[in-house]
Design a binder for these strands. Structure first.
Ligand SMILES: [Zn+2]
Ligand SMILES: [Zn+2]
Ligand SMILES: [Zn+2]
Ligand SMILES: [Zn+2]
Lengths: 140, 140
DNA sequence: CTTGCACATGAGAATCGTTATCATATATAT
DNA sequence: ATATATATGATAACGATTCTCATGTGCAAG
């Protein structure tokens, strides 16, 4: 239950927070902006404020429930922190986002950080390219 | 000469552009925000507009003279595109930025993109951690 | 089940980084 | 030197995010 999740991370169980959390869980898109999350909730008849969405997302992130990604174009995307860590590849044409995990790269990153005298705590890796084949925005 | 650089990429040689370009070349910091570049120029007595700095940086990037990085916190950093490609590791304490290049990771990225049906055109990889040893912000 | 209170909410104002507008100034080709 | 297309700087406008504050609500104590 989402209520449990909130309680577990020390957040009061409130209606807006539940709405956001369960929306994220049921949404088709895994990666969305705050604005999008807000719009979709409002469009589906919910009464919620944009400020509340931003606040909740920030708290969820601090609590480790969601992750924030800074993709190109300055847009910030959020996604539920479910399952194992992964990185992203984004189509520069249609915006499609695919996920991947590469053990070798992850290990290499740790080695690099160590060699440079850093204690690695996080990383952001996003590849950009054009998705061939199914890219709906591809030129003929 | 910086004038040559501008001409080579098809940009008119203007005083503001020269100021920005030579400042970037002489600056101690390799990675700076637009705001910082503007401030330092103004503080050193130059007469230049913030809009001009943003415009020039955008043009320089399009021309391949500089690179734009989106580090954590939504801040955008620029750096002269000198020497070979590299990625970054940033200290979450003091903000220090170190550069690195790892052939294995670069190759792997290309393979991953290909496997997922993408034509890789770019990537962003930034590691975050705490710089041990010389970190001026480290706790005692 | 009430009740009290700390905390959360929503509407809108405020702020931040960035881009657009526009009248003026300047670089380059003639 | 002159013409013309382009660049500049001040400022307004903008989109994304955060802040403010009056009101509403979760929840624990009684
Ligand atoms: Zn993801
Ligand atoms: Zn695509
Ligand atoms: Zn660099
Ligand atoms: Zn440090």
């Amino acid at each position: 239950m989402e209520s449990e999740e909130l309680r577990n991370v020390g957040l009061k169980v409130t209606t807006p927070r539940l709405k956001i959390l369960s929306f994220l869980e049921s949404a088709k898109e895994k990666h969305m902006t705050a604005e999008t999350i807000y719009r979709k909730l409002v469009d589906s008849g919910e009464v919620i404020g944009l400020a509340t969405v931003y606040r909740a997302l920030t708290q969820f992130e601090a609590a480790g429930l969601i992750t924030r990604h800074h993709f190109e174009g300055g847009q910030t995307f959020f996604e539920l922190e479910r399952g194992p860590h992964h990185d992203h590849i984004v189509c520069i044409r249609c915006g499609r986002v695919e996920e991947f995990y590469d053990k070798m790269i992850e290990e290499r990153q740790r080695e690099i950080a160590e060699k440079l005298g850093f204690t690695l705590s996080d990383h952001a890796m996003t590849l950009y390219g054009e998705c061939s084949g199914g890219c709906p925005a591809a030129k003929p």
